[in-house]
Simulated assay, not measured.
Amino acid sequence: MQQKFEAAIYNEEVLAALQEGEHHKNLSDSWAETHYFEIYASSLEDAWDRMRRKYSTDRGFIIKSVEEVD
């Protein structure tokens, strides 16, 4: 059974670029702020794994939280 989760994610590379008066070469400036995504997964661990695969720290993404929602 799939549960519903919400992930809060931003990109530290975009944030750093904006702080230096620059822009990230591939991502919009909005990624400096937290984005919220709904995800369906079998467990909290599965939800974290899915988010880590899609929003890799190698590309500057920071997953602030993943929480179960109703």
Rank of each mutant, 00 (worst) to 15 (best):
A47V: 03
A47W: 03
I62M: 02
R59I: 06
E68G: 07
K54D: 04
D29L: 14
L27F: 14
Q3I: 01
T57D: 08
K4W: 09
L18A: 11
A32M: 14
V66K: 01
S42C: 03
A16W: 07
M51S: 04
N26P: 06
D70N: 06
D58N: 06
A16Q: 14
A7D: 06
S43Y: 09
H23Q: 14
D70K: 13
T57L: 06
A16S: 04
R50I: 12
E38M: 03
A16M: 07
F5A: 08
Q3T: 03
F5N: 03
L18E: 14
Y55H: 09
H35N: 09
D58R: 05
E13I: 11
E33D: 04
K4S: 10
L44K: 07
G21F: 13
H35E: 03
G21E: 12
W31F: 12
S28D: 10
E20G: 10
W31P: 00
S30W: 01
R52I: 01
E12R: 13
V14L: 10
E20Q: 13
R50H: 05
M51V: 10
A41Q: 05
D49A: 11
V66P: 03
A7M: 06
A41Y: 06
D29R: 02
L18W: 07
Q2M: 12
I39A: 08
Q19T: 15
I39Q: 04
E45Y: 08
S56D: 03
D46W: 00
F37Q: 03
I9R: 03
W48C: 00
V14M: 08
Y10I: 09
Q2N: 15
M1E: 11
Y55A: 06
W48V: 07
S42D: 08
S65P: 04
Q19R: 15
A8H: 13
M51K: 02
R59Y: 07
N11V: 04
E22F: 15
L18Y: 10
Y36L: 01
G60V: 12
F37Y: 08
Y10Q: 02
E20K: 13
K54S: 09
S30Q: 08
I62F: 00
H24P: 05
F37A: 02
E45F: 11
R52W: 07
S56P: 01
M51W: 04
S42W: 06
G60W: 08
E20W: 13
F61K: 07
A47H: 02
D70T: 05
E45R: 10
E13V: 04
G60M: 12
L27H: 09
S28I: 01
T57M: 10
E12D: 15
D46A: 02
V69R: 01
R50V: 12
A16G: 02
I63F: 00
E38H: 10
I39K: 02
V66W: 01
E20L: 08
E20D: 14
N11W: 13
W31Y: 12
N26G: 11
H35L: 00
R59N: 12
L44F: 09
E38C: 05
E6H: 01
